[in-house]
Design a protein around this nucleic acid. Structure first.
Lengths: 212, 212
DNA sequence: GATTTGTTTAATAGCTCTATTAATAACGAT
DNA sequence: ATCGTTATTAATAGAGCTATTAAACAAATC
């Protein structure tokens, strides 16, 4: 049998369900999404969702975990020795921003599911990621910052504060996205333009704020 | 009958329901909150919730509207003629921050209900508030900024960008609140301290970023 | 004290949702 | 072609939810 052709024609229903569920959960949140709706949009019987994933919570956790990992990985600090601190910082901010641009609804989804943290382990997942990645990242950044501060090239600031500032400014653009979209009632292209202008402004703001 | 005593002893059930509903909706969101739960926590029969507010959506909209109004009103720009631009700006940032401190779960609640904007009129409420208040506020701020820019006391920046920056930095502290709380597992007092330090850092960041 | 008006409850109809079970269809290997 | 495994569906139990209705209760008015 022609495996290559098969896989391009007939995507397995298990994967279809996963994709549809991802879309719906991110769009509407956990409690507002039903397995009935997932099945209907995936084009299968509702029992099949439970056949593959047993429970709704199970299916949800699988998706959430991958989403959170993605969100954090997007923030890996670039430590390119050939670039200056300013250039590295600019690139990091822009990369984080661009990652969010590709998945605009992700921040509000993750933040919201953290808040509705009953019976599921959202915060445990995050804590694990924090232990494995973020604290290491902060240490590295802290060392770099101390060097810059000593050389009087930037003002006194902690790595945590800098990261928080970057994340705050970047994420909020996409949290406010539906508001901007609706209130200003601009078209798709217009919104894209506003977002790109905002990206420049964020970089300026952060670089300026660091001057000694 | 002793009206004064009555009202202090026996709060009307209608108001109790409203308060409980507010708490639950903000805590868990619209779809995860049931009228059964509201009634049970208010100490009355579930039918009473519908007697006073007819539908769940009705009750929810009443609450949401008041919450959004509060969130925006907290950001009224102080235009104190006796203070310098820098002093006014500092005070505005701090007032906005303090308002959020008093209602930490509000931002994520409002943002989330905006996202889940089906069948309800969340965005229409916001648009109305925008028309009535925010656009006026932005115009006023823009005039002030232009003056400062002309006098070369600050760099080139639009009112919208400045407001977005303030709101981003302030709100994100409280969006990330459950994470900080859990990941760093500090006590109530520790969290309060971190929040106050962050407030100072945000003011510094913004003021520094505006230097010409 | 009887009557009207407003408040609260019990009961329930009618949905929708999750999860399970048993039966059927599809398919790959023998 | 047959068998065994995997995928899929129909049916349904059991629970919870919203909203309505009719009846009971309390309080104010006459």
């Amino acid at each position: 049998m022609k495996k290559g052709q098969e896989s391009s024609k007939k995507v397995s229903m298990e994967i279809t369900i996963l994709k549809v569920a991802e879309e719906l959960f991110v769009e509407k949140g956990y409690s507002a999404t039903s397995t009935v709706e997932i099945a209907s949009k995936a084009g299968c019987n509702q029992a099949l969702v439970h056949y593959y994933f047993r429970t709704k919570a199970n299916l949800f956790n699988k998706i959430l975990e991958s989403k959170i990992s993605f969100m954090v990985s997007a923030f890996d600090y670039i430590d390119n020795k050939e670039l200056s601190f300013t250039e590295n910082l600019t690139k990091t901010i822009e990369m984080h921003f661009d990652a969010l641009t590709k998945d605009k609804k992700l921040p509000i989804f993750v933040l919201n599911e953290i808040k509705n943290n009953d019976n599921n382990n959202v915060l445990d997942i995050i804590r694990e990621i924090f232990r494995n990645k973020i604290s290491f990242l902060l240490d590295k950044l802290d060392a770099i910052l101390q060097e810059e501060i000593k050389a009087k090239r930037i003002r006194e600031i902690s790595a945590l504060d800098l990261v928080l500032t970057i994340v705050s400014l970047n994420i909020f653009v996409f949290l406010a996205y539906p508001i901007v979209d609706y209130v200003l009632s601009v078209n798709e292209k217009g919104v894209e333009l506003i977002i790109q202008q905002r990206k420049k402004e964020i970089v300026s703001t952060i670089l300026n704020s660091l001057r000694p």
